[in-house]
Design a protein around this nucleic acid. Structure first.
Length: 579
RNA sequence: GGUCCAGUGGUGUAGUGGUUAACAUGCCUCCCUGUCACGGAGGAGAUCGCGGGUUCGAUCCCCGUCUGGACCGCCA
C-alpha cells in the first residue's frame, strides 16, 4: 500500500506535506459536518479531520475500522499536549475504507475497563492497546540487547531439542507420546541444561539460546507453563569472570532499553547472609528493615515458645518496625496469619512504649531479657518488634514475609528503583523430608566448592556450591552455577542424591559417558526473560509481557486449550484415557 | 492438594429476602464546524454463572458445582 508515514511520527516539520497513512480508528468525534478521527498504528495516534464534503462518506465508520487516508498535514489551531503528534493534524482529502469492524467487547485503549480474563479471550484486541504494544516492544528490546551483547562477546546461538528425554528429577515434565514407538514418551525440555553442557564438551566455548522451556507445575503471577530463558554457558571462566560478563550484559540492557546506567559490580550476598538479613534467598535490597537474630538473648528463657526452639537449636528472628507501636489488634492478627502461612507457628509481638516493653508477649519475658532486647535492637520509643521462633530457615522465611509486607504497606520502594544483587555460596544439597534423602538444591550438575569437597561424605549439608542467583528487586531473574566436569565427581553427586548405579546409567548414562572425553571446566546461567521483562515494564504479572499466556488454571482463554482429542488421535498414539 | 476473594445488560461495577434490578461506559437514532474521555436529546440491551435447599416469595440466606483471580504446597 502507498503509506508514506507512520502515524506516530508527525511533528510540526511535516506541515504542508501531502501524506498517506493507514491505521485503525481509535476514536471518532462527530460534529455533523466536521468529523475528527484518531487513527492509530503501532507507532502512535494522529488526528485526522474530515470536512463537510467527506463527512457523509465516513458517516458509518466506527471504532477499529481500518482506513487508508490521503491528506495534508497542517498545524493545529488547538494543540493537544497529551499527544506526541498533538501539534499537527491531517486534513483528509481521500479516504478508503479497507475493512470494517464489529463493536469490540473491550475498549481498545490504555485505560480499558475489561478484566484480565476478558482481555485474554480477545487477546488480539487487547494487544492493540498502545500500553500492551509498548510492553511487547520493550521485551523485544531486552532480548535484542542481550543478543547483541552476547554476539559481541563471542557467544553463538545454538538451538537444542524441545522434544527430549524424560529425567524425572526436578520439576514435573510435559510428556509427549511417541506415535512411532508405542508406549514410549518424549519430555518437553524443562531447560536446555544437559544439551548446553554437551555443547561445552563439544568445544563451542561460548553458547547462548533464547530457549523455550516447559514445566508442568501450578501457575502464579510470575510463573507460566511455557516460558523463555536466555540460556547461557561458557568454558574456562571463573565464577567471578563469568558473573562480570553477565553484569555487563545487564548494564547493556538497562542502557539500551531504559537509557539508564547501572552501577557495577553488583553486590554479592552469601546465601546465609541473605536468609539472615532479608529472610529470603532473593532479597529486595532497595530498602532496609533488616532481620535481627536475637536467639542468644533468650538462651535461658522461660517462655516456652522460645525455650523449645532453643532446645532444638532453632532461631529467633526479630523485625523492628519503627514508630509502629499503635498497631491494631486486627493488623497483628493479619501479620500472625501471614507468618503462619509461611510455616511459622506464631508471632511474638512486643513494643516499646514509655520506655517499657509492652504488648501481648511482654509478660513472658524477664526484665533482663527486655533490657537486652532494647539494647540489641537499639529500640526507640514506639517501635514495634515482631519475633518468629522456629527452625532457622523457617524463622527466616516467615520473618522475611513480614519484611515484604511492610515494604508494600509502608511504601518503602519506588517503582523506578532497580537494584541487582548476586546471591552466592548456596548449599549444594538440601534435605527432602518427604523422601528423607539429600536432593540437589540447584541441580545435580552443580560443582561443589573445592574447599568443601572433603565434607561430601561426612557432612554433605554443609557443603557449599559454586551456584549463584541474580536477583532484582526481590525476584530471581537468573540462576546458574559452575558445573562438575570430572566424571568421578559427577557419579559421586548422583550417588549422594540416592541414585543407584543402574538409575544413573539409565537416566544420565549418555551424559556421564560424555565426561570421559576431555570435558572443559564450564559453567553458565539462565535468565528468566519473561520475569525480567515483567520487572522492567513495571508489570503486575508475567502475562502482561507474554503475547498469548495461559491463565492461572493452566488454560489458554483464547484457544481454550487444552481440549479433548479424537479417539483416532489417541489410537495412533497408543493411548487410552482412563477417567 | 489447600486457604482466601470474586461471578449482576457488550464491558466494568452498585444494590436488595418482596413493585419496573441502579450507575458508568459501550452500542443505536437524531442534533451540532474545533473536538481530543467532545457535548446535547432519545432508545435498545440482564432468564443477577449453574444445580439443589430454606421460604408464601431467593439475584440476595444455606449446600454443592463450575469459572476466574491471589497465595501456600509445588516450581532440580
Amino acid at each position: 500500500m502507498n503509506r508514506t508515514h507512520t502515524n506516530g511520527e508527525f511533528r510540526i516539520k511535516h506541515v504542508s506535506q501531502t501524506v498517506t497513512i493507514i491505521g485503525w480508528v481509535a476514536k471518532r468525534r462527530n460534529f455533523g459536518s466536521i468529523v475528527f478521527m484518531d487513527i492509530r498504528d503501532r507507532t502512535g495516534i494522529v488526528q485526522c479531520v474530515f470536512n463537510e464534503a467527506l463527512s457523509e462518506k465516513v458517516k458509518d465508520v466506527r471504532n477499529e475500522y481500518v482506513l487508508e487516508i490521503k491528506g495534508t498535514v497542517v498545524e493545529r489551531k488547538d494543540k493537544n499536549p497529551k499527544l506526541p503528534t498533538g501539534e499537527v493534524e491531517i486534513i483528509v482529502e481521500e479516504v478508503t475504507i479497507i475493512n470494517t469492524a464489529a463493536t469490540t467487547p473491550i475498549i481498545v485503549a490504555d485505560e480499558t475497563d475489561a478484566l484480565e480474563d476478558t482481555r485474554l479471550r480477545f487477546r488480539y484486541l487487547d494487544l492493540r492497546r498502545p500500553l500492551m504494544q509498548k510492553k511487547l516492544m520493550q521485551r523485544h528490546a531486552i532480548t535484542k540487547a542481550m543478543r547483541n551483547f552476547l554476539d559481541d562477546e563471542g557467544f553463538i546461538e545454538v538451538e537444542t531439542p524441545l522434544l527430549t528425554k524424560s529425567t524425572p528429577e526436578g520439576s514435573r515434565e510435559y510428556l509427549v507420546p511417541s506415535r512411532v514407538h508405542a508406549g514410549e514418551f518424549y519430555a518437553l525440555a524443562q531447560s536446555p541444561q544437559i544439551f548446553k553442557q554437551m555443547l561445552m564438551i563439544a568445544g563451542f566455548e561460548r553458547y547462548y539460546q533464547v530457549a523455550r522451556c516447559f514445566r508442568d507445575e501450578d501457575l502464579r503471577a510470575d510463573r507460566q507453563l511455557d516460558f523463555t530463558q536466555v540460556d547461557i554457558e561458557a568454558s574456562f571462566l571463573s565464577e567471578v569472570e563469568f558473573q562480570t560478563i553477565m553484569e555487563n550484559m545487564m548494564v547493556n540492557v538497562f542502557k539500551n532499553v531504559m537509557g539508564r546506567d547501572l552501577p557495577v559490580p553488583f553486590r554479592r550476598i552469601p546465601f546465609e547472609e541473605a536468609m539472615n538479613r532479608y529472610g529470603v534467598d532473593k532479597p529486595d535490597i532497595r530498602y532496609g528493615l533488616h532481620l535481627n537474630d536475637v536467639t542468644h538473648l533468650f538462651s535461658a528463657s522461660e517462655f516456652k515458645v522460645f525455650s523449645s526452639v532453643i532446645e532444638t537449636r532453632g532461631s529467633i528472628k526479630a523485625l523492628v518496625i519503627p514508630d509502629y507501636a499503635s498497631i491494631t489488634r486486627k493488623e497483628i492478627d493479619a501479620l500472625t496469619d501471614l507468618a503462619k502461612k509461611y510455616g511459622a507457628k506464631g508471632l511474638v509481638v512486643v513494643k516499646l512504649v514509655n520506655g517499657v516493653i509492652e504488648g501481648p508477649a511482654a509478660k513472658f519475658l524477664s526484665e533482663s531479657e527486655k533490657a537486652a532486647l532494647i539494647g540489641q535492637l537499639s529500640l526507640s520509643e514506639n517501635d514495634l518488634v515482631l519475633m518468629v521462633a522456629d527452625a532457622w530457615e523457617k524463622a527466616c522465611i516467615a520473618a522475611g514475609a513480614l519484611r515484604t509486607y511492610f515494604r508494600d504497606t509502608l511504601k518503602l520502594v519506588r517503582e523506578d528503583q532497580f537494584e541487582f544483587a548476586w546471591v552466592v555460596d548456596f548449599p549444594l544439597f538440601e534435605h527432602d523430608a518427604e523422601e528423607d534423602r539429600l536432593i540437589a538444591r540447584h541441580h545435580p550438575f552443580t560443582r561443589p566448592k573445592e574447599e568443601d569437597a572433603h565434607l561430601l561424605d561426612s557432612d554433605p549439608l554443609s557443603v557449599k556450591a559454586c551456584a549463584y542467583d541474580l536477583v532484582l528487586n526481590g525476584f530471581e531473574v537468573a540462576g546458574g552455577s559452575l558445573r562438575i566436569y570430572d566424571q568421578q565427581m559427577q557419579s559421586k553427586l548422583f550417588s549422594l542424591i540416592g541414585f543407584s548405579e543402574e538409575q544413573i546409567e539409565k537416566r544420565f548414562g549418555f551424559f556421564v559417558d560424555a565426561f570421559k572425553y576431555g570435558t572443559p571446566p564450564h559453567g553458565g546461567i539462565a535468565f528468566g526473560l519473561d520475569r525480567l521483562a515483567m520487572i522492567l515494564t513495571n508489570s503486575e504479572s508475567l502475562r502482561d509481557v507474554i503475547a498469548f499466556p495461559k491463565n492461572a488454571s493452566a488454560r489458554c482463554p483464547l484457544t481454550d486449550a487444552p481440549t479433548p482429542v479424537e479417539t483416532k488421535q489417541l489410537d495412533e498414539l497408543h493411548l487410552t484415557v482412563v477417567k
